[in-house]
Amino acid sequence: MGAVSMNESFDLNQAADTQVLVILRHGPQGGSLLREGLDAALVAAAFGRNVSLVFMGEGVMALCRGQDVDALGQKATAATLEMLQMYDITDVRVEAAAMTSMGLSEDDLILPVLPLPAKALATVIAAAPLVLTF
C-alpha cells in the first residue's frame, strides 16, 4: 500500500470550530461541481465563516500535483486550491480510502491534508453545523 497514513488520532479540535463543511466528491474534469463547490467554500470564508473541506471519492483527484492549467479550455481549479490559505481555509481533510483507491499518497498532493478513515469522517460530518455536498 502507498504512503497513506491511516491516522486514527485525528484532530477533532479544529473540526469543532467548523461552521461550514464543504464536501467535494467530484474531480476537476468532466463537470463543474468541484469548481462551484469551491466557490461556495470561498464565499462562506469571505463572509467570515470557519470553513473546512473534505475531499471524498473522485474529489481527491482535485488535489493532484502537476495538473495542466486550463488543459480543457476550462478555468482550472488547482489555482483556487492554492489560494485557500488566503481565505483562512486550512482545515483540509481527505477520505483515506479514496486516496488508496486512486493510488495517491500525500506526496502526490498540492496541499497538506489530513487523511481520515471513514469512521472519523462520519464524526467530522456529524459535528458540522452546516454541510454542503458537491
Binding site: 461552521q19 461550514v20 461556495a40 464565499v43 462562506a44 463572509f47 453545523p129 452546516l130 454541510v131 458537491f134
Partner: peptide
C-alpha cells in the same frame, strides 16, 4: 442572488437538504 444567501439559509434554518445530480 449571491452564494452568501445560501450560506445564510444553511446556517439560519434547522435543516438544509441538498439534491444533487
Amino acid at each position: 442572488t449571491g452564494l452568501g444567501q445560501l450560506i445564510d439559509a444553511g446556517l439560519t434554518c434547522d435543516r438544509l437538504v441538498t439534491f444533487g445530480p
